[in-house]
Amino acid sequence: MIEKISAKIDAINAEDPNTVMYHGEECPKELVYGQRMTDMLHEYDPAPSLAIQVAARGQHIQRWAIPRSDYPMDRKGYLKWRTELKLMHGELLAEILQEESADSSLIEKVKNLVTKKRLKTDLETQQLEDVICLVFLKYYFSEFAAEHEEEKVISIIQKTWAKMTEKGHELALQLDYKENDLELIKKALQ
């Protein structure tokens, strides 16, 4: 079942007009993100549940449909944008699961995972948050750090770290960082 669901998520994300370089080719940004989430999830947990596999692969499904530029460029606008995205991701994944005749409990669980309901009380929601943070640190942190002032980067590292479990911290410290990035991380964690 996960193969068919992942293929449907990938087909939607393959339509992303935004691209990134991936293995020397220009690829749809959210397609790459979904694949990275799946890879990291399996590093994190070799036998994840179907719900968390769907949520990880579809974490950013059709994200480009709600542009950040449609919201005020302040914290309040950012949070509203993120909330709208999470709700949309949950609905799109629910539609795919319904097409695959998934039961209502699975659909509800996936929606709760991508909307981060019960983040601090639900184990799988916290595990998904760890995976999200690990993907950021492994694939996107270096570029983010290069584009922002040190003070902001340190703040983001501290906020990211606070969202993670001990297991997430252990895995994050095992990632292969550029020397400058590792220094920033160490500075933030002091």
Rank of each mutant, 00 (worst) to 15 (best):
H42A: 00
Q127S: 12
K187P: 00
E151L: 07
I2D: 14
M88R: 14
Q126Y: 03
T165R: 06
T83M: 06
E108I: 02
E100H: 15
H42Q: 02
I2N: 15
K178R: 13
E183K: 15
H148Q: 08
Q53V: 02
H42G: 00
N13L: 11
R82S: 10
T160A: 03
A11I: 03
W81Y: 13
K80S: 11
P72E: 13
A145Q: 02
I107Q: 08
I156P: 00
T19K: 10
H148M: 05
D70K: 10
A47Y: 13
E26A: 09
E30C: 02
E143L: 06
L182E: 08
V131D: 04
E25C: 07
D10E: 15
L189D: 03
L97W: 04
D176Q: 10
A102I: 12
S101K: 15
I2V: 14
A162K: 11
G77I: 01
D70S: 13
P28V: 08
Y71C: 01
W64I: 06
S101E: 15
M164Y: 07
E91N: 13
Q59Y: 05
E100K: 11
Y177Q: 07
E84G: 00
A51S: 12
Q35L: 13
I61V: 11
K111P: 00
L119S: 04
N180S: 09
I9L: 05
A102C: 14
E95H: 15
T121N: 08
E15K: 15
A145W: 03
K138V: 01
I66E: 01
Q126I: 01
G90L: 06
S49N: 03
Q35C: 09
A14H: 06
P17W: 15
R68I: 12
L128C: 08
I61D: 01
D122V: 03
E143K: 10
T38P: 00
F141C: 02
K116P: 00
L173Y: 06
D70F: 07
M1F: 10
